[in-house]
Simulated scan of single mutants.
Amino acid sequence: MLKKLPKENMGRSDLGWLESRFHFSFAEYYNPKNMNFGVLRVVNDDIIHPMSGFDTHRHRDMEIVSYVVSGEISHRDSMGNTETLKRGEVQYLSAGDGISHSEHNWHKSEDLRLLQIWILPPRQGLDRLYGSYRFKEKDRKNKLLNIVSSQGGGAKIKLYQDVNFYVSELDAAKILDFRVKDDRQIYFVQIEGSSSVNGIRLDYGDAMEIADEGLLQIEALTPSHFMLIEMPKEA
């Protein structure tokens, strides 16, 4: 099953300082038929304009990954962490019983674009986690880079949930294959450029739900930047 999700059909919001595309029901985009895909609850494609951002707010019992596409994100939280991350770098937290944090774009002229991804934890009340990793472009250039895994996985970033995040930047005409296990499903996000996934074209901002496919052939139709989120298959 390959279900293409055109960006034109997604939820949208423009608050002036923040422009968002919502892959799933979120904020003012309420759609009870589009609440999640397996353990994936939120994918927000956010553009934060200069000298603005999310002031201090609280999360609990959610695992959150922020993937920077362009610009710089400055983070501060109630655990004492402060840092600024750039393109291809990743921030994560497992909020447990509660973490307060803020996220801003303090650049005076450049927009910040990032994917904010929320994963449902395997249970409530888990210990809090926070961290980041500064991946390099060469790590994902013309190959799949596993940036997030479960605690038992091999990625630099480890969540509690049984998930794997992969990213890649493919040169035009390059092809990658990805084998999907029988008990797994995938959410594919076309971040930049265009790809063909098993013959179906995805352009900038599009997504795809994938289940019951043993092999994915991903071809870059243009220089292509994408993410795969692999997780247990829904019953």
Results as ranks from 00 to 15, higher is better:
M1C: 06
L2G: 11
K7C: 12
K7H: 13
M10G: 02
M10N: 12
S13A: 14
S13M: 14
G16K: 08
G16S: 09
G16P: 12
G16E: 11
W17G: 04
W17H: 09
L18M: 09
E19N: 13
R21E: 11
H23S: 15
F24E: 04
S25N: 05
A27W: 00
A27Y: 01
E28N: 13
Y29K: 09
Y30G: 02
N31W: 00
N34I: 05
N36P: 00
G38M: 10
V39G: 09
R41A: 08
V42W: 00
V42F: 05
D46S: 12
I47T: 15
H49M: 11
H49P: 07
M51P: 01
S52M: 04
F54Y: 13
D55M: 14
H57T: 00
H57M: 00
R58N: 08
D61W: 05
M62P: 03
E63T: 12
E63S: 11
I64E: 00
S66G: 01
Y67D: 06
Y67S: 04
V68C: 07
V69K: 10
S74V: 03
S74P: 01
R76L: 03
D77S: 09
D77Q: 03
M79K: 09
N81Y: 09
R87M: 10
G88H: 01
G88K: 01
L93F: 15
L93G: 00
G96E: 02
D97N: 15
I99G: 03
I99R: 06
H104R: 15
W106D: 05
D111N: 15
L112S: 03
R113G: 03
R113A: 02
L115E: 07
W118Y: 09
I119C: 04
L120C: 07
P122S: 02
P122F: 04
R123G: 03
R123N: 10
Q124I: 03
Q124L: 11
D127M: 13
Y130L: 11
G131W: 00
S132T: 15
S132D: 14
S132I: 05
Y133R: 14
Y133P: 07
R134F: 00
K136S: 12
E137K: 15
K141E: 13
N142M: 10
L145I: 02
I147A: 11
S149A: 10
G152E: 14
G154W: 03
A155P: 08
K156T: 06
K158N: 12
K158F: 00
L159T: 05
Y160F: 14
D162R: 10
N164V: 05
Y166M: 04
V167N: 06
V167L: 08
L170H: 09
D171Q: 13
A173D: 15
L176D: 03
V180A: 06
V180G: 08
V180Y: 07
K181T: 07
Q185H: 03
I186W: 03
V189W: 09
Q190F: 08
I191K: 01
G193I: 06
S196P: 02
V197Q: 07
N198R: 11
L202P: 04
L202N: 07
Y204S: 13
Y204C: 10
G205A: 05
D206K: 10
M208Y: 10
E209W: 13
I210K: 11
D212W: 10
D212K: 14
D212A: 09
D212M: 08
L215I: 12
L216Q: 10
Q217G: 05
Q217F: 06
E219W: 04
E219M: 12
L221K: 14
T222F: 00
S224D: 08
S224I: 08
F226T: 09
E230V: 15
P232K: 11
K233A: 12
A235H: 13
